[in-house]
Amino acid sequence: MASTLAIDGLDAFYGEVQVLRGFKLDLQQHEVLCLLGRNGAGKTTALKAIMGLVPARAGSIIKDGRDLTKLAPHEVPRTGVAYVPQGRRLFSELTVAENIEIGLMARGKGRTTRESVLDLFPVLRERLSQRSGTLSGGEQQMLAMARALCLEPDVLLLDEPTEGLMPSMIAKIRETVAGLRERGVSTILVEQRVDAVLSLADRVAFIENGQNRETLPVQAVRDDPAFVRRYVGVE
């Protein structure tokens, strides 16, 4: 299979503190690749580094023959990478419609995109003029996903989209991710719930201490719980 995003030898720092050390990751077309690892392992930092929000001091992130580490942060989303940050990070003072508008502006998408995204999350349609900070947690997560999908991305980065949500919402988010794979989107999903990982992922990358220790097909992880125990410490 062809790779959509290839990260190699990536070093990233917060100030002088090194967080990613020779980080490698290879996202293939039409797959859901899950990052698993303990708190502070560097999962969020890896996604931020892809977005250019944490500068790379060494290494490369190749997408469609271009090295994203050479781009300014605001140019990364224009290459078709969309980001749903941990904790959602909506523009909470802005309305639902305005959040969506910002997603559309990122790659100059218009009404057709907007309508198809709103069809995915019909509740948002009823709340367009509501301030997004006043939405429920689940609605906020849907808006964060909707805002990202307005880019019509071919690579989607999802950082703990089910954190703190009710089971019904978690199901909805999972269903959406699975649906996106059918539509050809490649997804990097950071997820703490092992059951969700096992049901959604095509492959799993185990992150520890700022490194990708190993990437395995999901079947191998299902077959041998020792992997999860070793890198996450739970079963």
């Binding site: 977005m51 989303p77 990070r89 523009f91 305005e98 997603g103 502006m105 990122a106």
Partner: peptide
């Protein structure tokens, strides 16, 4: 809109091409 988005969250604004 771009100005307000930048005001509320500079980092996320960048992640959306601003």
């Amino acid at each position: 809109l771009v100005m307000r988005a930048t005001q509320y969250d500079r980092e996320t604004a960048q992640a959306f091409g601003i």
